[in-house]
Design a protein around this nucleic acid. Sequence first.
DNA 1: CGCCATACTGATAACGACAATCAACACGCG
DNA 2: CGCGTGTTGATTGTCGTTATCAGTATGGCG
Lengths: 136, 136
Amino acid sequence: MKRNTWQREAVRDALGSNEGFVSAQGLHQGLREAGSSIGLATVYRALADLATEGEADSLQSDQGESLYRACTPGQHHHHLICRNCGLTVEIEADAVEAWAHEVASDNGFTQASHIVDVFGLCARCSASPAALGHGA
Amino acid sequence: MKRNTWQREAVRDALGSNEGFVSAQGLHQGLREAGSSIGLATVYRALADLATEGEADSLQSDQGESLYRACTPGQHHHHLICRNCGLTVEIEADAVEAWAHEVASDNGFTQASHIVDVFGLCARCSASPAALGHGA
DNA sequence: CGCCATACTGATAACGACAATCAACACGCG
DNA sequence: CGCGTGTTGATTGTCGTTATCAGTATGGCG
C-alpha cells in the first residue's frame, strides 16, 4: 500500500516551487534550511518515485549529477535550459519526434525513444556577461 | 610538449575497434585482458583527451556512467543507439540543428547547444526477442 | 479509541565512478 | 649518454547515489 506522507508532499512541493532543475542534494539542503527534518535518502526516494510516476523530469548534468524538475504530467516534452541560471522552458517538438522515429526506422531500429535537450543562455543571462562567473 | 605514447594509441585503437559506446572501465578491462598493462587513470586521461580533441564522442548512460566511442572528427553528428546490443549509427540532423537554434531564439536564448540521441532496438535485436534478457 | 501490521523514514555504511596525488619512468633532445 | 619533463599507474580521496536496518508513523480494523 502507498502511504501519504508529509515528506513526499514536501519534496513534490519544493520541486514545484523551483523554476529550474535541482539536484537531489540541493533539494534536500533547501528543505533542511526551510526547517524540515527530512532525510537525504527520503529525498532520493521521493524524487525517483516522482520521476517514475511522470510528475518529474530528470536529466544528467555535465558532472553526471541527476537533476530533477516538476513537469506537466503525462505529456511528452523537452527542455530549453539556461546554462547559467538554470531557467527552464518546456518545449514541444513534434517535428523532432517524427524525425527521430523516421531515422530509427530508416536504420531498421524499432521502439525508438530519444533524449533531446537544448542548452543556452537565457535573455537575462545573455545580457549580463558579468553574471557568467568567469570574470578575470 | 605532447608525447607520443603507446598507451594513448592503445586507447584510440581500442575505441576504434568497437562498434558501440564503451565505458572507461570497460575499455580498461578490455585492454588489460588483451595483455596491456595500461593503468585505469591513463585510460580516463586518454579518453578525456580524445573527447576534447573531437576524436571521440561521449554520452552518459542511464546509471550516470560516461560512455565513449570513436567518431568522425570535426563533424557534428548525433547517434542512433541500440538499447540492447549497443550498436551505434552516426546520424546527421541538419533539421534538428536548425530547430534547436530556432526554438532557442524564440525564447530569447543565445549560444544554443543541444543533446540529441536516439535509442531503440536495432534490426537484429528487434528480430530476436529472446536476446532481450527479460523473457517472461 | 487504541492496536497492530507494515510501509516509510533517516543516519550511516557501502558502493561505484571518477579525479587527484606522487614517486618512478620513458621519451625526446642536446 | 645524461638530463628535463611530460606521462604513467597504484593508490587514495571525493562525491553522488543506493542499500541497510532499526525505529517510527500511517492507516485500517476491532
